[in-house]
């Protein structure tokens, strides 16, 4: 087929090929992905602690609201995991990035497709864990309405793009430093404590809550989790905040990529 004549269709084909090959690749590592899925139980552990403390009721959350929130946060966490920097660091250090640069495709798309494929591989494991939760205590789960589900899925996916962009920004440092992944460990700290992953934002003292909301982190967990579990939330504003942060992050990413690629001397330079 003539690619020049129909660039849109050609692009779609590239995307489909990328995702299907990456999916086949990820399926090979399903044991590892199952372990990764298991490592996302943090919100459920935190649910256990919060259930035993009266602090959540004091902040105006009922037991049902609390458990639904944390189960939703667990789902959000499962499908917004980004590990770009670890792979990208290895690829720049070992020179594996070089052949990707020769191809007529921005290499970051390849990593993006790998993440999507990994999420698809996770689905059965996450369903299995939800089934386990349902068997353990059915009141932990709830049946979201179709709109909740659709909006929630859209929010999770936007949150994933936001996290991907944030890590892309950190990954660009790989062109300048050999241990850029260490920086990501620092970025993980505010994500862990300010996003709502370990404590619902309602329980924060007001000044800390305002500080948290000024960062992109609550948009990564708190907003999608709330949408999913049916808590009242400003939908339009939430999506607008994510879009704004994406824009704020995408511009420096692009700039650093162009500068970095000029610095990149393949291997060992």
């Amino acid at each position: 087929m003539n690619r020049r004549a129909r660039p849109g269709i050609a692009r779609l084909q590239v995307a489909r090929q990328l995702i299907t090959t990456q999916y086949a690749y990820m399926l090979e590592y399903r044991a590892e992905i199952a372990l990764w899925a298991l490592s996302g139980v943090l919100p459920l552990i935190m649910l256990g602690v919060w259930q035993g403390s009266g602090a959540a009721q004091r902040a105006g959350l009922t037991q049902a609201q609390l458990s639904h929130y944390f189960v939703a946060a667990f789902l959000v966490r499962q499908f917004t995991v980004v590990w770009l920097i670890h792979v990208f660091e290895e690829d720049t250090l070992s020179g594996k990035l070089s052949p990707y640069l020769l191809q007529p495709l921005q290499p970051l798309w390849r990593y993006f497709a790998a993440h999507l494929a990994e999420q698809a591989t996770r689905v059965p494991f996450v369903l299995l864990m939800l089934l386990g939760l349902a068997l353990l205590n059915p009141s932990l789960l709830w049946l979201p309405s179709a709109t909740q589900l659709l909006l929630g899925a859209a929010a999770i996916w936007s949150a994933f793009i936001l996290r991907f962009l944030l890590q892309t920004l950190a990954s660009m440092l790989c062109f300048w430093s050999e241990r850029a992944a260490a920086l990501d460990r620092l970025l993980l700290i505010p994500y862990l404590f300010l996003s709502g992953l370990v404590a619902p934002l309602e329980t924060f003292p007001e000044p800390v809550r305002r500080l948290a909301l000024a960062t992109p982190f609550p948009a990564m967990v708190d907003f999608p989790a709330r949408l999913l579990c049916g808590e009242p939330v400003d939908v339009a504003k939430g999506f607008a905040v994510i879009a704004l942060w994406c824009l704020v992050l995408a511009l420096p990413c692009r700039w650093l990529w162009c500068r970095g690629i000029r610095r990149y001397g393949a291997m060992g330079a």
Binding site: V49, S53, A55, R58, V198, A199, T203
Partner: peptide, 9 residues
């Protein structure tokens, strides 16, 4: 987080 869990308790 520990201080949140202890707030009011």
């Amino acid at each position: 987080v520990l201080s949140l869990l202890f707030s009011g308790e």
